[in-house]
Design a protein around this nucleic acid. Structure first.
Lengths: 168, 168
DNA sequence: AAGATATGTCAACATGACTGTCCCAAATCG
DNA sequence: CGATTTGGGACAGTCATGTTGACATATCTT
């Protein structure tokens, strides 16, 4: 089915060859690692790692996030998150408040210092992402999103979607 | 960058809002982690981890790959790769041959057992990727690829492209 | 009052990165 | 030819970040 080698179509809709799957796997791997590696030097300067970055990111995205929600987003154990969160609080980047509706909850938000670091980290990711968006064009962006959504198990999609929703 | 906030053009493809950038970051994170997590149970059954999976993957993709090329693909230190490679060789999944053009090189390939495990791992990734491709449609796939390529530093793109090239 | 839930904490351990150092064999350069 | 560089390997120690398991406390729900 490799018939016309001269006029290779980008991707055939029905006959998905192994090479097309492998290309997706590889680009996803290299694209993801390129993105996260971009922030490493900023993190190293602050004495933090990628785990701290992920926590900062989601707290910045959803201020007032409860610990349990962050746990579900990161899909790690509470012991792992506990260490990260303790460090961020000890260094004054994150603060907690007791939940209003449910007083067992600890609602997380960034301090001014935390927001400053997160902004620097975000600016770094933004540079790369904006360049990629600009290079690829508007139509490509929606395609990029829709394939990625398709990779996420349907059970997890509401959680991911909730990040983009207007704050309640 | 946020200078023209007052006179925002209505639907300009160049006006990239923070939410669009954050959506890309998040979907890339969740899409990538969803993909790799799918193979974890197979790996655990074999007593390997994600580092072994990455090595197996690239050796399967480019049989006869030299150690140095694998090192550049994975972007880790040779000490880290050394341990992984030693384990894969000790368990009979990978074998080495002395380079023909350059006898210092060690060319890597999978044994039959290695190819079997890699096939099982690939089948797992393929299931998810094929479903996402199918859900999203052909146009989306090329958009997906082109944004991801844009995220990869230009200096690294030839290396990534080389994976898809016909074997020399 | 009893049970479930949200969070925190202690301890031990596994994985997979890192740095630094040293070594050997083969290729390449002068 | 000798000197240097390159490809690969090895030893030792460390760090970041994940895991299990057990247990405690406060609060909400029934």
């Amino acid at each position: 089915m490799r018939a016309a080698a001269s006029l290779t179509p980008p991707a055939s809709p029905l006959y998905l060859r192994e090479d097309e799957i492998r290309r997706g796997i590889e680009l996803l791997y290299f694209g993801y690692t390129s993105m996260v590696r971009g922030a490493d030097s900023i993190l190293a300067d602050s004495g933090f790692g990628r785990a701290h970055h992920r926590a900062l990111y989601f707290i910045a995205r959803r201020p007032g996030l409860a610990v349990g929600e962050l746990l579900r987003l990161l899909a790690i154990t509470k012991q792992s998150l506990g260490r990260v969160l303790t460090e961020l609080q000890d260094k004054g980047l994150v603060e907690q408040a007791i939940g209003t509706a449910d007083r067992r909850q600890r609602l997380l938000r960034l301090t001014a210092a935390g927001a400053g670091l997160e902004a620097a980290l975000f600016a770094e990711l933004e540079t790369g992402m904006a360049a990629a968006y600009g290079e690829a064009g508007q139509a490509a962006i929606t395609g990029f999103w829709s394939v990625l959504i398709g990779l996420i198990p349907t059970a997890d999609r509401p959680l991911v979607d909730s990040l983009g929703q207007r704050q309640g």
